[in-house]
Design a protein around this nucleic acid. Structure first.
Length: 568
DNA sequence: GCCGTTTTCGGCCCGACTGTTTTCAGTCG
């Protein structure tokens, strides 16, 4: 699938045009095109073949031509044309805070800078400050920006940011009286990675809230601390922004700072067409404020139901909301069990009983113990004989532990030839069978997964693409083929909720649902402290538009068992 | 470059902040 390659090219075209001072709306059109392509679940090549490319809003004749050319020849003349005479390293400097296209173009034109090193030198020599419109302070800011640019890490995983923001909010509330406080930004939308952390609050004295924030123990550097906005770097190098607003604008501000930008632009365009104006202070008709206090009010004033944060990506949610046809999304409380956790029997840290008790504390009705199998020797995979011993232990624990059912599950390896690691005789004794690929990622992954799904005792495929966020690309797998066979064989696909996986991802989940595939959300927990990650999986499911009825482990135990035996 | 229950041409989201300016351009979210 070449979607992302083309999205990256469009994104670069946008940056270069911006640098060149091209009409900003044209620049924006390419930015939007890039976003659309990287969000697109379908293969862009299939769309071209079916001649449906320009049916996508935001992709017109021009970009369609560029896409077709790239797919045909592997080159895009539009990109080749705009990049002439523009060093790649120069454009990368747009990533420096405070360095926009105008300033960069000025420095390039007047002082001939071409690289990061050039920029450093002219900043130190004082030449940059002497340019028209520049000055000492601007250069000082750019220096800070450059420092951060060099030191800043990649986006951080949601699974790291999420506990961190809860910790910060708790610490803040202990220190100062805050009326309302809530995470905003991509974290509230449960994106799999976040760049920085946004928090919104209301309270009597904004300045005192900001100063309390700036003096929290985890803060290592204060970038700004004013009346309404504070910005700090915390341990680990992540930037955290706190904004304090009037209670009357809390809803509008929360809506605004939650984003996404594309979602907000879409809303504002729509509002404008209806003679309304939306800002972070409220919804207005002329001078008259119609809403602002609560988020639901803001959407209502626009004639819409409250759109859940996880859907706010401009992936069709506004259009569906206009028709009041948004799905009722699955919630954390709907999850009745986890079907894929490990214990000491393979590479987990706790006993069956400890895991089961922890699961019961979360309010689960069942827990599926799913150890690795012999092929996954590095992970302590267990033989059929050992598995039978574990079953005896499960039976014993079950005798003294009431209120939760411990299910015999397994994470069976899909071998290089697509066969499974346990015999059917063992597999058919399972309550719930998960099959996963753990080795030979490049070896015909699609074929192997399709073959595994034909086995009547495989109820779900674990982490279907094998990707690790920011560490490893997934297998080369044809997901459309997997979805088709999954639907036909009534095999569920997993959202592996372990923070580093989130696999399937949001976009895949939405496609899977459209293809009629059922989903299970499992943590793959190896430790009782990892069971909470279910919330990350539920967030991913919600971002994939799933309702309770789409998720297998929202079923009560009796119906789950019936469901999982249906294949036989 | 894209798009059309105002439009095939002329628009395209909104506001704050900052610093360099004597009225505003650039950047950011």
């Amino acid at each position: 699938m070449k979607n992302q390659e083309i999205a990256d090219l469009f994104s670069r075209v946008a940056d270069i045009l911006d640098f060149k001072g091209e009409n900003s709306f044209r620049v924006n059109a390419y930015r939007r095109g890039a976003l659309i392509l990287s969000d697109l679940a379908e293969d862009v090549e299939a769309l071209v073949e079916e001649g449906r490319l320009t049916e996508i809003p935001g992709i017109g004749e021009g970009m369609a031509r560029n896409i077709e050319e790239y797919l045909g020849t592997g080159r895009m003349s539009k990109y080749e044309e705009v990049r002439k005479g523009v060093p790649e390293e120069l454009i990368a400097l747009l990533g420096v805070q405070g360095m926009g296209p105008k300033t960069l173009a000025l420095a390039h034109r007047e002082l001939g800078i071409k690289s990061l090193n050039d920029l450093r030198m002219i900043m130190d020599s004082g030449e940059l400050a002497s340019l028209p419109g520049m000055g000492e302070k601007k250069v000082a800011n750019l220096k800070k920006g450059l420092e951060h640019f060099l030191a800043s890490k990649e986006r951080i995983s949601l699974g790291v940011a999420y506990p961190l923001v809860l910790e910060i909010i708790e610490a803040l509330q202990k220190k100062v009286k805050v009326q309302k406080v809530c995470p905003a930004g991509s974290l509230r939308r449960m994106r799999e990675t976040v760049g920085d952390i946004d928090i919104l609050a209301t309270g009597r004295n904004g300045a005192s809230i900001i100063s309390a924030f700036a003096s929290l123990p985890m803060v290592t550097q204060v970038l700004a601390a004013g009346e309404t906005k504070g910005s700090c770097i915390v341990e680990g190098g992540t930037q955290v922004d706190l904004r304090v607003v009037e209670p009357g604008s809390y809803g509008a501000a929360l809506q605004y700072f939650t984003g996404s930008k594309a979602h907000n632009v879409k809303l504002r365009e729509m509002a404008r067409a209806n003679g309304l104006k939306v800002s972070e202070y409220g919804v207005f008709r002329g001078e008259k404020k119609l809403a602002g206090k609560a988020e639901a009010e803001v959407y209502k004033a626009l004639g819409l139901p409250l759109i859940p944060p996880e859907l706010r990506e401009d992936r069709g949610e506004v259009e569906m909301a206009v028709e009041w046809k948004l799905p009722s999304l699955v919630e954390n409380k709907d999850i009745l069990g986890d079907l894929h956790v490990h214990t000491k029997w393979s590479d987990g840290h706790h006993s069956v009983e400890e895991m089961a008790r922890a699961a019961k504390e979360r309010g689960y009705k069942y827990l599926g113990i799913a150890e690795h199998t012999p092929t996954a020797a590095y992970a302590g995979g267990i033989s059929e004989a050992e598995l039978k011993k574990e079953w005896r232990e499960i039976a014993e624990v079950q005798k003294r532990l009431k209120g939760i059912r411990i299910l015999r599950s397994a994470e069976v390896d899909i071998r290089a030839d697509g066969s499974l690691d346990y015999s059917d005789e063992i597999l058919k004794e399972l309550d719930f069978g998960v099959a996963s690929i753990h080795s030979g990622f490049k070896k015909r992954a699609t074929e192997r997964i399709l073959k595994a799904m034909q086995n009547p005792y495989v109820d779900a495929i674990g982490h279907p693409t094998g990707r690790l966020i920011s560490r490893r690309e997934g297998y080369e797998v044809d997901l459309e083929a997997v979805f088709k066979t999954a639907a036909a064989t009534d095999t569920a696909l997993e959202i592996n909720a372990y923070y580093d996986r989130l696999d399937l991802n949001d976009v895949h989940v939405k496609r899977a649902k459209e293809a009629g595939v059922k989903i299970t959300i499992n943590t793959d927990a190896h430790h009782i402290d990892q069971l909470w990650m279910m919330e990350l999986g539920v967030g991913t499911a919600r971002r994939g538009w799933l309702a309770k009825g789409d998720v297998l482990n929202c079923l009560p135990p009796e119906r789950l068992r019936k469901k999982s035996r249906k294949k036989v």
